[in-house]
Nucleic acid binder design. Structure first.
Lengths: 340, 340
DNA sequence: AGTTTTTTGAGGTACGCACCTCAAAACCAT
DNA sequence: ATGGTTTTGAGGTGCGTACCTCAAAAAACT
């Protein structure tokens, strides 16, 4: 059977109280006593029963997902998954809540983060563009004992397990590979569309995309990125300009998760030849597009996995535990009609 | 705060003992008292604290993975993941053990399953080909209170959440789509290689593959499946025969996870034109092949996910709990050099 | 009505640990 | 040896539930 604290106490020749002091490193234990207990831990292969420990502590984990407010379908899916995770993790005393960021303003995000109460919140998953304000706010949170992770988009950091999301450079490269191989060696121009190129994710995807196309598919030329800013009129205008300015458009790569605007416009155009279309994320719109052959491939990340991974990482950090890296690696998924 | 059994007792106007009887549906409670308690549960939104419940029960979960014994790299990866999961789930009182099936004989598998002791094992994940013997053995296990899941390969059942693994028909179709699109419209012959076509997975993959190719890529013709039986001499012979018999081989699809034998032979051949190669599973060999451009794409399923999913499903069944379907769906992953 | 049967309550113990208090023991320096 | 300080032990309580016993109450019979 699994050794308990009592077994430990006996093996180390000390009392339960001392074992407890060592385990929760409370002060007032002589160094060689600590060593004796640690040796016993090694010897017995003792692992603290976290279930019982948390019960005793009456501890629960309260996490917050800080998300932007938009009508984005990807975001909606994410929120749904957070709700699901809330149910699934309820038995493990984990509670996740969504807080929307009213505006994209970094100051406001930082302000919101600053207002979080360490008594009420143990960890935050932050989905927000990179900015010095947010970085500072995160540092202050860490100081106050609130754990943070960058969620999907966000800070670039050396600390690899601070980020939950895919490698966007690799995702772009994957899109590039697909675009190249699907083009069947025929020359053409590739249109790249984003809501905004200010987002780090879009930038990185574009970079990865270009790298592969330039290296392996010289007969394809990638046009400068178009930015819709989520504005229908603007989108219609710049798309029309691109198509009439560049007759040989053979492919379209939509960088942002919200592809409805651009793809609806493109599909409404009088088609001479249907361009190859690659987009990101498995939204209802994109899924329908894939099934009806209007989209050729999707590059996605699983929202459920993202949410659960963020929760697991935050919880592990609260417990000062290691994570299982292989479980938390978010995969770049490729979706066709066949494996949807 | 979260309501406890005490709150429940008070709200229902009964004692703790009665609440306990209702919760664990023990006998000796009048129907209308049961209803009163259930109403209180609804009203307070009570959910039993599984952590405390399992503590009190002193319960742990002992699971067994029944795996074939081969030198298969995919299998090795799987075993490694089981070891990892063992660590990761240790805090939740889950223990997973691997048992190897000495031979592929259905009788032997059934015998092994029959020997499992319900006192020592709570659930089994079975990776074994479909057979009446195994099906019967599973039924007997269910009767003795041992939960089972079919793991990766295995029984076909209506019961969807009895199977942990990918939809192999869809996986084959995905391979077909890739083969078709990567072929750039040029005609050619496709070689399909398997260890054996007796395995249900291989059959289904082939079916899905053919469906897509026949429907959308009529210029490609798929040759009859070659079976290596894991025998190097035989493999060399039939491969050589195929290549010399069919000059226009433009693609190779390896159905089985173990692709070393076939692909090593193919790569050693004097190449006129490198055929497109699609294989299954992320083994060290396949990964290296992908990175060195000898393999064009891999269709994979995440072994870590498979293992954890099997464990979560078995545990949920032990607790008579529902699973989170979206988490347990194993995705058909597509791997290129870029998103490896 | 009385009798039997069923249902309920009160209370205890246990699970493995956290956290607290108080007193005893061990150590230290003088 | 003295007093002071640090370390340790013994013991208790609680977390939320499971499961047990025994007696009391309620319901169902005759």
């Amino acid at each position: 059977m699994r050794p308990t604290t009592k077994d430990l106490a006996q093996a180390a020749g000390v009392s339960l109280a001392t074992v407890d002091r060592v385990l929760n490193d409370r002060s007032g234990v002589r160094k060689d006593t600590v060593d004796r207990v640690n040796q016993a831990i090694e010897k017995l292969g003792f692992t603290r029963n976290l279930v019982a420990a948390n019960l005793a502590r009456g501890k629960d984990y309260r996490f917050v997902f800080l998300l932007p407010r938009t009508g984005d379908q990807f975001l909606e899916g994410l929120i749904k998954r957070i709700g699901e995770a809330n149910l699934a993790f309820a038995a493990e005393m984990v509670r996740a809540e969504v807080i929307h960021i009213p505006e994209g303003d970094p100051h406001q995000i930082a302000h919101l983060l600053g207002k979080l109460d360490a008594e009420r919140v143990n960890g935050v998953a932050i989905m927000a563009p990179e900015s010095p304000q947010v970085r500072d706010a995160k540092a202050r949170l860490a100081h106050r004992g609130i754990e943070t992770v960058s969620f999907i988009s966000g800070q670039i950091t050396q600390d690899h397990d601070d980020f939950v999301g895919i490698d966007n450079h690799a995702a772009g490269a994957t899109a590039g590979r697909l675009m190249g191989r699907f083009s069947e060696g025929k020359p053409g121009k590739i249109l790249v569309i984003a809501e905004t190129m200010l987002a780090r994710d879009s930038l990185e995807r574009r970079l990865g995309f270009d790298e592969v196309i330039n290296a392996d598919y010289p007969h394809l030329s990638v046009l400068p990125s178009l930015e819709t800013y989520g504005d229908a009129d603007r989108a219609a205008r710049i798309l029309e300009a691109s198509f009439s300015g560049h007759p040989g458009i053979s492919g379209v790569y939509v960088l942002s998760s919200e592809s409805r605007l651009a793809l609806t416009l493109i599909n409404a155009r009088p088609k001479t030849r249907q361009p190859l279309i690659i987009a990101h994320e498995r939204t209802p719109f994109n899924e329908a597009g894939l099934l009806s052959n209007q989209i050729d491939a999707l590059i996605t990340q699983d929202p459920g996995h993202l949410v659960r991974s963020a929760i697991r990482i935050l919880r592990a950090r609260c417990d000062r535990r290691d994570i299982l890296a292989s479980q938390e690696k978010i995969r770049i998924e490729i979706l066709f009609k066949e494996n949807i």
